[in-house]
């Protein structure tokens, strides 16, 4: 860890001033301190935003506004979240460990960086960490990497769970910056790598996440299915977030998002269109998977994710729609 100054912002404006002057925001620090120890991140100026008051969960019309500093644990423990947006609580609880969730924040979790082993190792080439050095994962050990949204420059996934649920729930990221407030749909928050993998998201310089807004509850069946190598405390190989409603034996409405499958939390409206209005069946689920995976490309070790995504989607849709949902 390189030496740095640490200031404590008294309020949001104070924080914005510091960000404007080039400081990096720290909240829970569970990802940033990890990266700083390895000098993958090496800010020379940190500003703590822990005292900026952005730690409230409050109603927002029929929806809910979750402050950027609300911890993952508090968000998942909130009675309203658990009742009306259970998908979000499930996704958060599927991630990390209780200790990490007690410290990690809503805003910080959105900005979580990839777990790519080449990003995490400063002896290796990585365009995300050190632009222009190449991508070590291409041709390397890429079992956990993306099969959708990749580029020649980067195949790393966004590793988190919370954002995948937020994406399926049509949530928005609220920010404040030098040019005022912005509302960014979660689907437009994370950036596919393209030829500049160093920028994970669309936050602008000096901009601060102030919270996340959930729209009115959908009332649908909500399922977060996370598939991973351990039963707990492991990043997803593939995850599926589903919010789905049935009517007269047909799928009336559905939102599906996928984690650790693409370079960003992945949502493809064409998949949902393929399902809506149809009677659920294994064949239909297969058709939806065909749509989802039409452009999927494996890189060797991660080829299995294409099969896994198909089967995880089928399992999720079967659980949500078939009359005798099979429970494990």
């Amino acid at each position: 860890m390189k030496a740095f100054t640490l200031d404590h912002a008294a309020d949001a404006q104070d924080a914005l001033d510091a960000l404007g002057a080039g400081a990096t925001a720290i909240a829970g620090g569970t990802n940033l301190v990890d990266l700083m120890k390895l000098q993958i991140a090496a800010p020379d100026r940190l500003v703590s935003i822990r005292r900026t008051g952005l730690d409230q969960i409050a109603p927002d019309g029929e929806g809910l506004r979750i402050g950027a500093l609300v911890t993952n644990a508090d968000c998942a423990a909130d009675g309203r979240v658990r009742r009306d947006w259970p998908l979000l609580a499930q996704a958060i609880l599927a991630g990390a460990s209780p200790q990490l969730r007690n410290r990690a924040t809503t805003g910080g979790n959105l900005c979580q960086r990839t777990r790519c082993g080449y990003f995490y190792d400063t002896t290796q080439a990585c365009n995300k960490r050190a632009p222009g050095t190449g991508c070590g994962a291409l041709g390397g050990f890429n079992r956990i990497h993306a099969v959708l949204g990749t580029s020649d420059a980067c195949i790393a996934t966004y590793p988190g769970d919370m954002a995948v649920a937020l994406l399926a729930l049509d949530a928005e990221v609220l920010t404040q910056g030098p040019d005022g407030e912005r509302t960014i749909p979660v689907g437009q928050f994370h950036r596919q790598p393209g030829d500049d993998p160093s920028r994970d998201n669309t936050l602008l310089p000096g901009e601060l996440i102030t919270g996340v807004r959930l729209p009115a509850p959908s009332g649908g069946m909500q399922i977060y299915r996370k598939v991973r190598d351990r039963a707990s405390y492991a990043f997803a190989l593939v995850s599926v977030a589903a919010d789905l409603a049935m009517e007269d034996g047909r799928i009336a409405r559905c939102a599906l998002a996928f984690g650790s499958l693409g370079t960003v939390p992945w949502r493809d409206r064409a998949v949902e269109q393929a399902l809506v209005g149809e009677t659920p069946s294994p064949a239909l689920f297969d058709k939806a998977a065909d749509v989802l995976l039409r452009d999927a490309r494996g890189f060797g070790e991660n080829d299995f994710k294409i099969v896994l995504a198909r089967r995880a989607l089928a399992a999720t849709l079967a659980e949500a729609t078939l009359s005798n949902p099979a429970k494990g």
């Binding site: 995490y120 290796q124 050990f141 956990i144 351990r230 707990s232 405390y233």
Partner: peptide
Amino acid sequence: GHLVNHDLAEYHVPVHAD
């Protein structure tokens, strides 16, 4: 020849739930 999964996040020893 470098070891890719050289930490306890990616070298998976069993956890309680396993």
